[in-house]
């Protein structure tokens, strides 16, 4: 059974999630990928105010395709999260709480997840057309010049994801594969 989760998430709410839990996300999440991360990190280092409050925020690593008529966005599945790993520990230390993407993260990110009671979730890569149906509204809040890489404020409803990294140091990529291999051997 999937657990319904409201975004933004409290620290207490992240505590109850475990690697491997299926979740349905509803609420507000910001899009940011390569170019936006680089710019946001530069702004943080310069002590500038970010275009959205990072404290408690949720980020979705995605660059949507243009919206079809009547839709908030076009195809909008996750991109590979690890390209943002260079910037992520600092962002987690500044309050980022929920990350949504796909693929493995660095050890530094894993440690920052535990340290800050954050959570890393994965959505199904390559299912962008289906996932777009869970995105009800999209508004560009920063860097429109980046095109698809602009920061968008998304309103999502029952967006399916799975917990990969939890605050207890769990990594579902490691445990899921090992569980399968054990059954495959027996």
């Amino acid at each position: 059974m999937a657990i319904s989760v409201t975004l933004p998430m409290t620290k207490e709410a992240t505590t109850s999630l475990r690697a491997g839990d299926s979740v349905l996300l509803s609420g507000t999440i910001y899009t940011a990928r390569d170019a936006a991360h680089q710019r946001l990190h530069e702004m943080m280092q310069a002590g500038e105010t970010l275009p959205f409050d990072l404290d408690g925020a949720s980020i979705y690593y995605v660059g949507p395709s243009p919206a079809q008529p009547g839709m908030a966005v076009g195809s909008a599945g996750p991109t590979t999260s690890s390209r943002c790993d260079k910037y992520t520990p600092d962002m987690l230390d500044a309050g980022l709480r929920v990350m949504l993407g796909k693929g493995k993260r660095s050890d530094a990110v894993k440690q920052a997840v535990v340290r800050n009671s954050a959570v890393y979730l994965a959505a199904t890569g390559g299912a962008g057309a289906m996932l777009a149906r869970c995105i009800k509204d999209a508004e560009i809040v920063a860097f429109p010049e980046f095109g698809t890489e602009a920061v968008r404020k998304l309103t999502i409803e029952n967006f399916p994801a799975v917990v990969i990294l939890d605050i207890h140091g769990g990594d579902y990529y490691e445990t899921a594969r090992q569980s399968y291999l054990k059954t495959a051997e027996s």
Binding site: G63, P64, A127, P160
Partner: peptide, 24 residues
């Protein structure tokens, strides 16, 4: 788990219509 993910991938390409299969 793998069966469920393959079902999602199948539903995605069976129902996407004019929406790109993947945003990339």
């Amino acid at each position: 788990t793998a069966q469920d993910i393959l079902d999602v991938i199948i539903e995605n390409f069976e129902t996407n219509g004019p929406i790109p299969l993947c945003q990339d």
